[in-house]
Design a protein around this nucleic acid. Structure first.
Lengths: 233, 233
DNA sequence: TAGTGGTCTAGACCACCGG
DNA sequence: CGGTGGTCTAGACCACTAT
């Protein structure tokens, strides 16, 4: 049975997606070969391929050469996080962004930082601590280490004026990025910085970036109470 | 100057990526047209297109018809989260997964749930609370609402045997998924369930899913202390 | 080794949108 | 309106990997 030709790959994708939703193709099933689907749906094989690529990216199907296309038995929820520059994030809420440098100095990396960046031995790196404000209120505390071997320019930047988050994002593109999220109870000093009470649950994001195996920076951001991270998809 | 032809789109992507890293193309710059790049790099335009698609997906470039391809002034960090079935996640750590149903009953949805699912008026839905265990220890508490109008089968499932996370994931594919992450201080009852003390900072993940505008479920999972969410890229 | 998805090409046309 | 990216096609060949 040949379906009426709908030529765009999004149409093809939606047709197949619909078949997954209505269980024409259920968990564990194998789908027809691209070639056959192309014939059935009245389009070129590469159009089916484009549709499949999208579905595969979203984790709705699994494709393997020779084995064909299958609906996974144990689906994985996949979501894309988009984390903007902190200033942009604040401004998007319609409030003014503020920034205070707390400290910036060269220090030997502690073991925790060595582990995060995969350093075999301690190095002297730049430790930057700063506070981001939203509408004059503490918004996010940033504790960062910058590898000045990979990023020597960092030593000549005036971080009282320019914030490290923004400078690095704009001037130091990276290859690889690891992120971690978790919750902590505010310490006394953290509570003080974020103007809350010790013990308050705070949302932490850690991010480390590399350029071709070379560590650039690792940063731990601690958000003020009430912060939520959201996905758009 | 014509570069030696490297025909695979990943090669092309890597060449352009390298040019971004070494600032041949810096923030704000406009790149040559695909056609010209194809000539210069000795490949077909569609190969350049494929490479650009990948770079665009990762947020490294911005493409607009007529305006061309540009390096964004304000880059966004993009990461993909992969959230497996809870049982798989536990088993991957090499420990045994356990599951206890706490309660499952039909109830009228509170306003918070209506807001999450975008319901204009309260409905009677299935409220399921359960605890996941890792190696006999509390791992994750799951507080879920299932829309039995969209998912009538849910009323006849024995959730003491089958866990809702797994059943829904396997049998109810969805169109749309929203997620939120934040930190809370454990209440007395939460502390009791997760065998920790009240006030402990806990990591919370909320997820709501739809199939074509129709709400399926919304779930709030509260992880035991020490939990970290990580990205793979 | 053979079947299936992945890629490449050359060319055509379409869709968006900046000037 | 015209320039640019987006898509579609038909066909060829490549690269995995199940059998």
């Amino acid at each position: 049975m040949t379906t009426k030709p709908s030529n765009s790959w999004t149409d093809i994708r939606d047709i197949i997606h619909a078949r997954i939703l209505n269980k024409t193709y259920a968990a564990g099933d194998r789908l027809p070969r691209d070639q056959d689907l192309a014939l059935t749906l009245g389009c070129a094989r590469s159009t089916v391929q484009r549709a499949m690529q999208d579905l595969s990216d979203r984790g709705l199907i699994e494709r393997r050469r020779k084995a064909g296309t299958r609906i996974p038995e144990n689906p994985v929820t996949r979501a894309t996080l988009e984390i903007p520059m902190i200033r942009k994030e604040v401004e998007q809420k319609g409030v003014t962004h503020g920034y205070q440098l707390i400290s910036a100095k060269m220090l030997e990396t502690p073991r925790s930082v060595m582990a995060l960046l995969g350093l075999p031995a301690p190095i002297t790196a730049m430790h930057v601590q700063a506070l981001h404000l939203a509408d004059q209120q503490p918004y996010l505390f940033e504790d960062r280490w910058i590898n000045t071997q990979t990023v020597p320019e960092a030593t000549s930047i005036d971080f009282t004026r320019e914030n490290a988050n923004e400078w690095l994002l704009r001037h130091k593109p990276y290859n690889k990025c690891d992120m971690r999220f978790y919750a902590i109870n505010a310490s006394i000093s953290e509570a003080d910085l974020l103007q809350t009470s010790p013990g308050t649950a705070l949302f932490v994001m850690e991010r480390s970036t590399w350029i071709d195996q070379n560590p650039i920076t690792t940063v731990k951001t601690i958000a003020a109470p009430g912060y939520q991270l959201k996905t758009g998809s």
